[in-house]
Simulated scan of single mutants.
Amino acid sequence: MGSEKVPVFAQVDLDVAPGEFVAIVGESGVGKSTLLNCLAGLDTPSAGSVQVLGTDLGALPEGPQAHFRRRHLGFVFQAFHVLPHLSVAQNVALPLMLLGVPRAQQLQRVAEELAAVGLGDLGERLPQQLSGGQLQRVALARALVHRPALILADEPTGNLDPDTAERVMQLLAAQTRQHGAACVMVTHSRAAAAHADRVLRLTATGMRPEPAHG
């Protein structure tokens, strides 16, 4: 009995449309980050499948799966994950560099995305010269610069004060919809979840809609 495997969660059925923003809430330890990892193809579910743009991520070999992830997914994390030795503009350009986008197009896309998140004049700065809110906007620009089909956000406001968190969430929601991307965010924050088109609660036995004032 001691070695019996217990599922983290089961019976999860999620369909997210282009331009739709879905927030997933739930108790600590229920597997919200694990669910995001499954959606990204970083973890493989023991049953079922994950399909993005009609492609079954679990069926792809490691190399093609990594390329698919780079091309079609964007990630925003609580801890920002910017590279300290690169400038703001270089951090944002990373997805385009990995995809082999021509340099001139990189520069144009990075400039457009930094302007969109309100950092148009900070491209040459290093991450240590920015505030937490600015760093999260860098991370958001980096997640969107290659026009992904799916954005995965893991507690994107967890390290931010309430006012800064509100500004970041407004940007995340607006940019997701503007680019026609699907966005799945896991969060403990009701204020962050309020920006989503749908809020779902993850439990060990599946997901259900979260009541607006529940």
Rank of each mutant, 00 (worst) to 15 (best):
H146K: 12
L202R: 06
L200P: 08
A182R: 02
A174G: 15
L14A: 05
A111K: 14
Q175M: 14
D163G: 11
V76A: 14
A181N: 03
S131T: 13
A143R: 01
A115F: 04
Q134A: 10
P102G: 04
E124T: 07
V76G: 13
H72N: 15
G214T: 02
F9P: 05
Q170Y: 07
S28W: 12
C183S: 10
M185H: 00
A89P: 01
F80W: 03
Q136L: 10
L172S: 09
E124W: 03
I24M: 11
L152R: 06
L122E: 06
D56G: 03
L86D: 04
R167T: 15
A139E: 09
E20Q: 13
A174V: 04
V101N: 01
G100R: 00
D197M: 07
V186G: 08
R142C: 04
Q11R: 14
R70F: 05
G118W: 00
E4Y: 04
M97T: 12
A139C: 08
E155H: 08
L98Q: 10
A191V: 09
L171A: 08
D43T: 09
Q108M: 11
A66D: 14
T187I: 03
P64K: 03
I24V: 15
N159Q: 03
V8K: 05
N159K: 00
G19C: 13
V22E: 05
V6Q: 11
A174E: 15
R70Y: 02
V25S: 10
A116L: 13
L39S: 01
E166C: 09
E210F: 08
V184P: 11
H146N: 15
R167Q: 15
N37Y: 13
R137T: 00
L119A: 06
G63A: 15
R147Y: 09
F75C: 09
Q128L: 11
A182G: 15
C183D: 01
A153W: 07
P211C: 05
Q129S: 15
V8M: 11
R147T: 14
R70C: 01
V52R: 04
G2Q: 09
V82C: 07
A149V: 09
G29E: 13
A104D: 13
V8E: 01
K5T: 14
M207N: 02
A149R: 12
A116V: 00
K32P: 07
G133I: 03
L73Y: 11
T34I: 11
M97Y: 10
A59T: 00
G26W: 06
T176H: 08
G133M: 12
A173W: 06
A143Y: 07
G158Q: 04
V199W: 03
L160S: 05
G100Q: 03
V145E: 05
C183A: 15
V76W: 02
E20G: 07
V76M: 08
L73N: 08
V199C: 09
P156Y: 07
P209N: 10
V6T: 14
H179V: 14
M97A: 14
L200I: 10
V138T: 09
F68V: 00
G133D: 12
F77Y: 13
R109W: 07
G19K: 13
S28Y: 12
L122T: 06
L98G: 03
G48M: 00
A66P: 02
H67M: 14
R69P: 03
V138L: 09
F68I: 00
V16N: 12
T164A: 13
H85C: 08
M207S: 10
Q128F: 14
L99S: 01
